[in-house]
Amino acid sequence: MKPVISEHETAHPLSLVRYVVGFVGCVVLTLTAYLLVTRSTWPQGAIVGTLALLALLQFIIQMVLFLHVTEERGSHWKLVTMGLMLSVVLILVGGSIWIMNNLNYRMTPQQIDQYMRSQDSL
């Protein structure tokens, strides 16, 4: 019978280095984003793009180094479910913004109210 190993002692043991690198990386990214917002004179679009990129980087760092999505046993399924989650999140947030902005652009709040009342037969 092969010796039983628990989740904590799998092929990739948690290491101090990973946590330190992750922590320092996140601090740097957070500060960069903060300084970008408070100090920079970049155009709005560039700031939005950069902030999104910085957040995404930090997301990846934390997922890999803190939440260990890629190392433990069964990580294959963790990645699959995360992929599903990300697509649902993108569809839901992106879709809602697209739909609602489209409606807001085309209708006044009064028209919205009127439509909703008609749906409710109020």
């Binding site: 917002v37 709005q44 939005v48 957040a55 934390q62 803190f66």
Partner: peptide, 21 residues
């Protein structure tokens, strides 16, 4: 706990950083 920090990245970016600009 790590997961809650991940969520906070987006709250910090989208609510606070975007908001204050």
């Amino acid at each position: 706990w790590h997961f809650l920090d991940v969520i906070w990245i987006f709250i910090f970016t989208i609510v606070y950083l975007f908001g204050s600009r």
